[in-house]
Design a protein around this nucleic acid. Structure first.
Length: 732
DNA sequence: CCTCGGTGATTTTTT
DNA sequence: ATCACCGAGG
């Protein structure tokens, strides 16, 4: 009976994927092919039909949201029987394992999890200890360390592979960074995975325990796994070899974060006996949308993807709108949405706007506001990364783990209590010298110094001590409330009385509410760790106040990356220009362009009924004006699928090898806007390209009309004075 | 120690 | 345009 229910409504391929429980299985799940349903039904099948113990199943996803969704669906099918399944993200799975086993690596189980900010601060500190200036280096190096970790390289291995002096030095700082992390009893995101893999490698008996436990392993979004995740999955599945991975190479969009699409492409090589099931029936989009998206992604080299088919009918053509500028583009989008809602019975919640970069949301938002269209921007600054929220949490972190230097550094002078840079630096020097945690260094100052600084530090240390006594065993919400009150943080914020400070107070209230919810949801769970500790784990690993983002009565705005996994009846993808999508930074590297193309594919395949792609001739970018040409991806969509709106026939020109529009400043054409007017004229700060000197910035505009000259600082050739009329300059 | 103003850079970001 | 960071001055 349950068996029938679990197969009902599934197509033959989906059924096969659900029923294939033994041995390695690769499910190639194209966009909208009902992948989540297959995964959840497969879990339910294993338990409810095959009689496998829930405890023997591990299913990992990338996001909490995906994990939560699957968990809910499995529980719906099976009831409470499903409880024992480990269904969580890579990172939380690793946290659970490490909380139990990290002792083997000589580390304490009470570790805290550092986010990007904390980790950046620590990289700075590491650089300082190497006598280097942390200014410029820090961001880049943090990135590099992250990449090393994604690739599964510990400092020693990174050093081995260093081919130049700079890499060697970086690897040394990496080693110091790891040491500082250990001293702070902290792990960064990358460590969670890397140390788990290391643990399993060095302690086979520990690995064996988990291998035996998990007879069935499933991985979602396998195309986005990085090398460490790959190793982890292979370690865990090695004994039973019941490994099911699900993914779509065409939706691999996190290469820049260390994801390695080879993981999925080589699955059949890794497991020669693997069964492969391809889900190519699409349940989301109309045929035109599907064919258009497929035609784009087919331009990537490699095995051409299997064409997706749908039974949703042909649908409308894909609209391609050539806008005059970004405002016009936004207007087009908003008018279209208003039309869909007023004339065609759609709700705002069924409409979405996707863009390549967050900065592009501004123009769209302005226009939506103008017409009173309700919207929500998904993503952007994350809740738990807001300064005030991090401040409050840092108090808790420091109370739970006095070794947490990042937390101490953060709150020692927040609210302002007269402990400035000088004092902080002295504390850090003491910490480095005597090998103490930062907080202990502050204690030393409090005990040893009598001056103004000493008094201030004493105040801080006393505050912390009394807070610790009050709060350590408290419930998270109480702890936060007390911290905000006793530290004077809330009072200081309220005293400011600015709109910003009010918003911060609001955020803190939201944090309190979130903490209360957490306490309600997690009452009595897990052993050994205080509610406060559990709460801190949770906020470190949850990207946002989870849900409540997509609302039925609001238009959704988000980056294409955030859109992955979602679907909307009506979709606008804006900014389809060279330099935007594909992004400027990606155009030099063919592999990066391929990823941009997949990004375009992901964006298009989110649409169920109506899809519009827009580009703008002219766009405000970094404050100044820039001119754009239609994205190469637009030309890859067969004309028969497209309805072209807006400005003139760009396609004929785009087929040419030249840019679609020639905005050269030569004598025959003058400036684009007809010369003289400010509209298209050259202004200070503008970026231009000279046929001989290359790119440069305009320092000064001298005169006007035919005699107009420019002083330009060229990136390579220095400052030169150029007569516009003769120079054949291009904007760029 | 705090605040203001100049400087530079500026993709995407599940955890 | 905007934001984060740094250095000079209050």
């Amino acid at each position: 009976m349950l068996a029938d229910a679990l197969l009902e409504g599934l197509n033959p391929e989906q059924q096969e994927a659900v029923q294939t429980t033994e041995g390695p299985l690769l499910v190639l799940a194209g966009a909208g092919s009902g992948k989540t349903r297959v995964l959840t039904n497969r879990v339910a099948w294993l338990i409810g039909v095959c009689g496998i113990a829930p405890e023997a199943i591990l299913a990992v996803t990338f996001t909490n949201k995906a994990a939560g969704e699957m968990k809910a669906r499995v529980e719906k099918a099976l009831g409470p029987d499903a409880r024992g399944v480990w269904l969580s993200t890579f990172h939380s799975s690793c946290v659970r394992i490490l909380r139990a086993e990290i002792g083997h690596l000589g580390r304490s189980r009470g570790f805290v999890i550092y986010d990007e900010d904390d980790s950046l601060a620590l990289v700075r500190e590491a650089l300082r200890r190497h006598g280097q200036d942390p200014k410029e280096e820090a961001r880049r190096l943090r990135w590099r360390i992250d990449q090393w970790k994604n690739a599964g390289l510990l400092p020693a291995q990174a050093a081995e592979r260093a081919e130049d002096l700079e890499s060697e030095e970086s690897a040394e700082v990496y080693a110091t960074y790891q040491r500082l992390l250990a001293e702070a009893n902290a792990l960064d995101f990358g460590d969670l995975l890397l140390l788990t893999v290391e643990l399993f490698e060095r302690f086979p008996a520990v690995l064996r325990h988990y291998q035996e436990r998990w007879q069935y392993v499933m991985v979602d979004e396998y195309q986005d796994t990085n090398r460490v995740q790959y190793r982890l999955v292979n370690q865990l599945a090695a004994a039973h070899r019941n490994l099911c991975v699900v993914g779509d190479p065409n939706q691999s969009i996190y290469r820049w974060r260390g994801a390695d699409v080879r993981n999925i492409l080589d699955f059949e090589r890794d497991f020669p006996d693997a069964k492969v099931v391809a889900l190519h029936r699409n349940y989301r989009s109309t045929q035109r949308i599907l064919s258009g998206a497929g035609a784009v992604v087919e331009n990537n080299p490699g095995r051409p993807p299997k064409r997706m088919v749908t039974d949703r009918g042909d649908g409308d053509r894909i609209v391609v709108y050539a806008a005059r500028d970004d405002r016009d583009e936004a207007q087009f989008v908003v008018r279209g949405i208003l039309d869909a809602v007023r004339e065609r019975g759609h709700s705002y919640g069924q409409c979405a706007v996707f863009y390549r970069t967050n900065a592009q949301s501004r123009t769209i938002e302005e226009e939506l506001l103008k017409y009173d269209v309700p919207y929500v921007v998904v993503g952007g600054v994350r809740f738990y990364e807001r300064a005030e929220v991090k401040d409050a949490l840092s108090y808790l972190r420091l109370i739970v783990n006095p070794a947490d230097g990042a937390a101490a550094r953060r709150i020692v002078n927040r609210p302002a209590r007269g402990i400035g840079k000088t004092t902080l630096e002295r504390a850090e020097a003491i910490a480095a010298e005597r090998g103490l945690p930062l907080l202990e260094a502050f204690r030393a100052i409090a005990n040893e110094e009598s001056g103004r600084a000493g008094t201030a530090v004493r105040g801080f240390v006393t505050l912390l001590d009394s807070l610790e006594a009050e709060v350590r065993e408290a419930l998270p919400a109480d702890a936060i409330a007390r911290v905000l009150d006793r530290s004077g943080y809330l009072r200081a914020l309220e005293a400011e009385g600015t709109p910003e400070s009010e918003a911060r107070v609001e955020n803190l209230k939201e944090l309190l509410l979130g903490a209360e919810d957490f306490a309600a949801a997690n009452a009595g769970e897990e052993s050994g760790r205080s509610p406060l500790e559990q709460f801190l784990d949770q906020v470190a690993l949850v990207s946002d106040l989870d849900s409540a983002e997509l609302r039925d009565d609001r238009v959704s705005l988000m980056t294409v990356h955030s859109a992955k996994g979602l679907e909307f009846p009506i979709v606008y993808v804006v900014g389809l220009e060279e330099g935007v999508l594909p992004h400027q930074a990606s155009t030099k590297d063919p592999r990066a362009v391929e990823e941009e193309r997949r990004l375009c594919y992901v964006a298009m395949t989110r649409a169920m009924e109506r899809l519009a792609l827009t580009w703008a001739h002219e766009r405000r970018r970094y404050g100044s004006r820039s001119f754009g040409t239609p994205s190469r991806f637009l030309a890859e969509i067969p004309a028969a699928l497209v309805e072209r709106l807006g400005a003139p026939d760009w396609e004929a020109e785009a087929r040419d090898d030249r840019p679609a529009y020639d905005y050269s400043y030569d004598q025959s054409r003058g400036s684009r806007s007809g010369g003289g007017s400010e509209e298209g004229g050259v202004t200070k700060g503008m970026r231009v390209r000279h046929p001989i000197f290359g790119y440069g910035s305009v320092l000064e505009v001298i005169g006007s009309g035919p005699g107009q000259a420019l002083r330009i600082r060229f990136d390579r050739a220095g400052v030169k004075k150029i007569i516009v009329r003769y120079a054949n300059l291009e904007l760029g």
